[in-house]
Design a binder for these strands. Structure first.
Length: 395
RNA sequence: UGGCCCAUGGUGUAAUGGUAACACUCCGGUUUUUGGUACCGUCAUUCAAGGUUCGAGUCCUUGUGGGCCAA
């Protein structure tokens, strides 16, 4: 009998995942990860992890599976929280939950599971694993969850073949309502529990307050750039090569204090991210102001009026060689290689047609349509049909 | 110092003498396993003092604050 360690979060998805594995004949062990216990930074309910671990235990009891709690908060702090501070300090916008999957759930946690003699780990993610045979070798695929509305493949875009090899996604073929129905039929305590939100394990936080643990407030100015600024009308030169064109289109707009007018003050450019509207506290405009660039060196936030402001849009982004990740290593592009894909630059965004262009120093992702608020530090993930082929950090 | 103009929520503006409104901001909520976005909702306004009028943001007087022209 194959042994599976399932990460029970205290939510409905992992509860049902555990049940399905048991029904399929696996020997199932439930393991709850405690990764954060500083409640002072979360909004609302005081002690979420205690309630969650209790629910997880009750579910394990009901299903008749062994249950344990592991404390990975040290690793979580080192690999996720510190990374967050570092990225924000650099003026980039990290995605901690993508890292959490790569570094905690499918690394630290997975290794613990294997030490417990497990053949697989399983989670309650809405995605699926496929296996294909190529040249006599098994290759694993990361496929979107069948519930298009809940598909969480994006958050797993940094997983490797090795990690996928020992992973199961039991609820990937189900929709959320189906999962809830199963939980209800089984009378599981988590059946009606609200979906988790905010930072995985930490929960909803007020970001500026959270970041103030490490990043000091520093007053600076907010500058508004006109939509008809000459910055956007730079004559499009004739490009000698495709790569020149891509480099030109991928380049960020360079703003200067004198390119716009000062419209307000802020308490630290590193608390803001591109595309952000709330928190600027500048009123009196016809349309809302959006952040189009943050300069943490000069501590200036550049904004544009309206969601169609030119400063928000670009069609090409770049990923450096060190930050290109192929789940399908066998499909990795060689230099000068190209590939038609569908891509997204944030969770739950609809997939957009794009072309990958591999060059010497990295990878260009050229979108057919302009994208709003392409943000450094976030992940771009590329797909073909339902399969997530690879991903990278936007630079 | 003479002459002219302006003053409405936190901000920008609207309101033939007849219930003070719209947008943005803030705050709250919904959606969302990141940040962000999107959606919904609440709070909040006539510079001050007099006067005319059944009734004044609107008309008159004075004051205060700001802008412009003249010198």
């Amino acid at each position: 009998m194959k042994r599976v360690v399932v990460g029970l979060s205290g939510g409905v998805d992992s509860s049902v995942a555990a049940y399905l594995l048991k029904k399929q004949g696996y020997e199932v062990i439930g393991l709850f990860m405690k990764n954060w216990h500083d409640d002072s930074v979360t909004i609302s309910n005081e002690c979420p992890w205690l309630e969650d671990s209790n629910d997880a235990m009750l579910v394990a009891e009901k299903l008749g599976i062994p249950f344990q709690v592991v404390d990975l908060s040290e690793e979580y702090k080192e690999r996720i929280v510190d990374y967050m501070f570092k990225e924000y300090e650099l003026g980039r916008t990290p995605n901690p939950d993508v890292l959490c999957n790569r570094e905690i759930k499918f690394d630290v946690f997975l290794k613990i599971a294997l030490e417990l003699g497990a053949d697989f780990v399983a989670t309650g993610h809405y995605c699926r694993k496929g296996v294909i045979n190529k040249d006599g070798k098994e290759i694993y695929q990361l496929l979107a969850g069948k519930d298009a509305n809940k598909d969480q493949s994006y958050f797993l875009c940094q997983l490797s073949q090795e990690q996928l090899a020992t992973t199961l996604f039991p609820i990937g073929e189900l929709t959320k309502p189906e999962v809830r129905q199963i939980a209800t039929d089984l009378d599981l305590i988590t059946a009606e529990k609200k979906d988790s939100q905010g930072l995985c394990f930490i929960g909803k936080v007020r970001l500026p307050e959270f970041l103030q643990q490490k990043l000091e407030p520093k007053e600076g100015v907010i500058v508004q750039i006109a939509n008809d600024s000459e910055i956007y009308t730079k004559s499009q030169i004739k490009f000698e090569t495709k790569e020149e064109e891509l480099a030109f289109k991928a380049e960020k707009y360079q703003y200067n204090l004198k390119d716009g007018k000062v419209v307000g003050k802020h308490q630290g450019a590193h608390y803001f991210t591109k595309g952000q509207r709330k928190g600027l506290a500048v009123g009196g405009t016809k349309e809302p102001l959006f952040v189009i660039e943050t300069d943490v060196k000069e501590n200036i936030i550049y904004t544009g009026e309206g969601k169609n402001h030119k400063g928000l849009y670009r069609s090409v982004l770049f990923v450096t060689n060190g930050e290109i990740h192929w789940i399908r290593e066998d499909l990795a592009l060689a230099n000068d290689g190209q590939m038609q894909v569908k891509a997204r630059i944030r969770y739950r965004q609809s997939l957009e047609s794009a072309t990958l262009h591999k060059v010497k120093d990295g990878l260009y992702v050229e979108f057919e349509n302009q994208q709003s608020a392409i943000t450094e530090g976030q992940f771009v993930a590329w797909y073909q049909d339902e399969e997530l082929l690879g991903s990278g950090v936007i630079s």
